[in-house]
Amino acid sequence: MEEQDFINDLKAGKQFAYAKLIDLFQQKVFATCISFVPNKEDAEDIAQDVFLEVFKSIHKFKGNSKLSTWIYRIATNKSLEFIRKKSTKKRFAFLQSLTGNDFEIDKTNYFTEINHPGIVLEQKETSETLFLAINQLPEAQRIVFTLNKIDDKSYKEISEITNKSISSIESLLFRAKKNLQITLEHFYKNEK
């Protein structure tokens, strides 16, 4: 009932409700965004965009899921949209890389510019490789792996965000790990 009142205040566009919403969710939304986009400034811009989207689309929220789940879904979609836009800009470089090995990690893409304060310097190169490899995964696997391994969300939370069953989350995570193993194997073999 309390959440419904809060949602009604959001729908009415009340300023205090949005102040409360940001207080409650800013850290979690930002954490989800920086898990997909490992750059602090970009992740903050995306997080801001998430709250703007909530403001614009709250009237479409029917209450079929929890408000938090709906917000994390927007955060995930906005982050993927951002990566897609960045990737399109570098399409020319990507087309050039297509002539090479199929498993070669595309070093020209956005994830070569990591600026993640949570990654220690010694791990920076390893993390860059991991983020590049994650972004070679099919979208569904990428979402599940990122939300579980980087954003630290439980299977239940991921299943609610993605509207998939827990067993399919497990299966996607298993396939993601397998594909990452293959990609990284080829990367380290070619590195020499």
């Binding site: 207080d23 800013q26 850290q27 602090k40 993640h116 949570g118 990654i119 390893t126 993390s127 980087i150």
Partner: peptide, 15 residues
């Protein structure tokens, strides 16, 4: 490397 990633606090001016 995923386990070593620390939580990053959001900017104090974000709100």
């Amino acid at each position: 490397a995923t386990e070593a990633i620390k939580q990053v606090p959001v900017s104090p001016f974000f709100k």
